[in-house]
Amino acid sequence: MEKWADNKAWFLVLPVFVVVAFSAIIPLMTVVNYSVQDIFGPGNAVFVGTEWFEQMLTDHRLHDALWRQFLFSGLVLLIEIPLGILIALAMPKKGWGVSASLVTLAIPLLIPWNVIGTIWIIFTRPDIGLFGVGINSLDLLEVPFDHTARPSYAWVTLMAMEVWHWTPLVALLCYAGLRAIPEAYYQAAKIDGASAWAVFRYIQLPKMRGVLTIAVLLRWMDSFLIYAEPFALTGGGPGNSTTFLSIYLVKLATGQFDLGPAAAFSLIYFLIVLLFSFIFYQALLNVGKGEKAS
């Protein structure tokens, strides 16, 4: 290969390098720095090695929050993905209904997170909320509905909020995916005598693979990092029933000011999100791609 007279071209990469350094690498390194030290005050820090990591990995409250988090994100995916697909399939394909449904779906996505929390608190309040008053007037529940009364009520409220807020995103992505399928596929399926289920299973679902990958990744990461909604709703309660990882982390870091353990926790948290995102991505990319013997 020909050698260049000088390597000045590297300077062109420098701005990006600086931006990335300040936006990602340096903040991350400060977290790493905290995670291996016990800091008592400025200039008074002790290197503790992996002590904080060991402490966090054996912390029962963290384990509880982690399982809660997995349950929550799992439920979110199980509800939002199929529901989003169903909504997308049911959406009109032409006429004024298209814009009407697109605008309606987009509304929840435009509302700030903590406002959503407030809306749902009011909606489910047992004294003035439409839902709260409505369900209690039916007299079906043993304990009257109040999202702060029982863990299950808090969870139901939180799930409803999350599903209401984010299913539209999945639906919009799926709708875009469906609209991109050329008409000839449906025509061929008609000629082949395919049932509606076969059309979904062999045409629509495979063609939505790309958008579903994005939807699953976005919803997975976002629900795994959920903070504002449970914070606005009950602040992690009742008890610890809605204390998810991020709520616990914030309590640890800014409530108790345990920066070392919180930093170790952050890194573990980050790795979990990264690991699962990678697994989902690989799984969705390769699902149904293997050679099959007949």
Binding site: P182, A184, Y185, Q187, A188, Y202, I203, P206, G288
Partner: peptide, 9 residues
């Protein structure tokens, strides 16, 4: 059709 229509899975 104009372009191949297959059930690609």
């Amino acid at each position: 059709f104009q372009f191949p229509v297959l059930y690609d899975t």
